[in-house]
Design a protein around this nucleic acid. Sequence first.
DNA 1: ATATTGACCAACTTGTTCATTTAGTCATTC
DNA 2: GAATGACTAAATGAACAAGTTGGTCAATAT
Lengths: 189, 189
Amino acid sequence: MSEKRKQIIEAAAKSFSLFGYKATTMDQVAKMANVGKGTIYTFFKSKEELLEEIVSSIISEIKCEADAAIDQSLSFNENVQRALQRIFTFRKEHELTIKLLQEVRDIGTPAVRDVMKRLDREMIAYVRGKIEEAMAKGEIRSCDSELTAFLMFKMYIALNVEWEKEHEPLSQQKIAELFHLYLLKGLSP
Amino acid sequence: MSEKRKQIIEAAAKSFSLFGYKATTMDQVAKMANVGKGTIYTFFKSKEELLEEIVSSIISEIKCEADAAIDQSLSFNENVQRALQRIFTFRKEHELTIKLLQEVRDIGTPAVRDVMKRLDREMIAYVRGKIEEAMAKGEIRSCDSELTAFLMFKMYIALNVEWEKEHEPLSQQKIAELFHLYLLKGLSP
DNA sequence: ATATTGACCAACTTGTTCATTTAGTCATTC
DNA sequence: GAATGACTAAATGAACAAGTTGGTCAATAT
């Protein structure tokens, strides 16, 4: 894999998380990556595709971290909870996701909105996979995996993001308890 | 209560739900209400206060409808479910709430955003009241009523509004089942 | 040949001006 | 004294100029 390609991705990722997608110019990226602007276009057909590439690797990274949080000796409930906690901790602490979510909220840049929507969809798909595994093993009762993953994800957003808009933030401990109490009890076999 | 005041409220409500808050002018409201523009300001100190007044009566109306859906002979689970269903059916079918929610989404008019936020807060407070009643009666186990009401509301938004953005809408029947399965099981005493 | 480049261009933003519109007031009318 | 609509200051937006920026491509370097 080309060295220049890596430089470009790295420069763009840094600039996106520093200034946001809209405020990053391709001239800027070229300068930071020590390449001519034209070179960027031999690897990526547009600024948007460059963003997509970067977000794709973020998605892989998140999935990887979530997988690392899973411990086969624990129950499905414990594991899905740990995976979701990882996913949202990442979202909250990673410079780039913070900046991009801000940009969607404040400016609504369409390209960024789309790409963050994809990130959400992929996280839901990830959880869905875990649910299907657990169903196959008989760890949880049969259910619509898409719907269940969707609800788990939305509940985590409610607890991690929306609650804080009008109340004191909840500790991860408290979120885990609530998640268990409200959502998982309904899935026990 | 003044007849003119009623005319003004009625005219404004009609214009807001027809054209939205921003696109409604006070001249327009005065004309529709058959009063001079100055008269509006003897009853309301600003356009924003006029909107607040109208939304306040919407809130009362929704609470009233939700109360009507409650049947003392049924369980808490049944009733909270019926009340929430009423609230969201109203939101979805009432001309004015539809138009105002659109306006928040598309233009983000601050006055409208604030007033719709208040509507949400009041609906959560309403549900919270029902939860506290049920706790007092021992119908459900003890819990943080604010947090529980918040989660119930967010779950209903997820099922009624957000799911439809990427999937086929769910029937009210299906929503009731899911709500019961996922959220209420965790509250049984 | 192939990879790289940066000057170049069309499309899009941004800044500015100026005419129109509109929320809110108040002297006048009924 | 309640109601009004002409009036005003502020906000909006249309129109235009100036400046940026994403993307291309002929020229250059390897």
